[in-house]
């Protein structure tokens, strides 16, 4: 039954996550806080880190990881493998269906005024959704077990500030994540 729900939840994400990888984060955040109990918010943060630093599109990586966690929670390793595959399939099937329908009238679709105006309204909404999820993730990471995690907050703020520097902007996320790991080990967080 879990796998059926898993497919359905990711099918919905594939259908409504407009704007690629980052747009799936609010949906995953919603799942982390749902009654399913597939993964926690903390696990979601780890999933994002791994997805950013391994090959492949981030959205796909996160879906596979979320599916793995969900399947693992009910059936161990085999469940994890199955869950990863099912969640990923759920995520991409709406894309395949929509694209195949649209492919016939590619130009007409992308220039259709209703499509254009719908996306004009959806894009800022996606920004609100991502902001909400990121706010939840950040506050949970900064405030753990009833206290502010000051060292974590300071590392995060330093990284955040450094990422504004033009030359550092082009660095790959994996580079920052490795630095974070090193800082974590040194400070024994």
């Amino acid at each position: 039954m879990t796998f059926l729900y898993l497919f359905w939840e990711f099918f919905k994400i594939g259908l409504f996550a407009v704007g690629g990888g980052p747009a799936t984060i609010p949906f995953l955040f919603d799942l982390a806080n749902s009654d399913y109990g597939w993964f926690t918010q903390k696990q979601l943060v780890d999933m994002i880190a791994v997805s950013e630093s391994t090959p492949g599109p981030i959205g796909i990586n996160m879906a596979t990881y979320a599916g793995y966690n969900a399947g693992h929670s009910v059936m161990g390793l085999a469940g994890g493998v199955l869950g990863g595959i099912i969640a990923t399939a759920g995520l991409v099937i709406p894309s395949i269906i929509v694209i195949i329908i649209v492919a016939g009238f590619l130009k007409a679709f992308s220039e259709n005024k209703y499509v254009k105006s719908a996306f004009y309204g959806i894009r800022p909404m996606v920004t609100s959704l991502v902001l909400f999820a990121v706010y939840g993730i950040v506050s949970q990471t900064f405030y753990q077990d009833g206290a502010f995690a000051w060292q974590v907050i300071i590392i995060s703020l330093i990284a955040f500030a450094l990422m504004f520097i033009k030359k550092l902007k082009k660095l790959h996320p994996a580079f920052w994540l490795v630095l974070g790991a090193v800082a974590g080990v040194i400070l024994k967080l």
């Binding site: 990121v134 955040f160 630095l179 974070g180 974590g184 080990v185 967080l189």
Partner: peptide, 24 residues
């Protein structure tokens, strides 16, 4: 590994905040 992950989570927060800025 737990310590490293904690540091990584701190950086994820920074990366995500920049994602929000880019999207905005």
């Amino acid at each position: 590994v737990a310590s490293a992950l904690m540091g990584i989570r701190a950086v994820v927060c920074a990366l995500l905040s920049h994602t929000v800025i880019t999207l905005a």
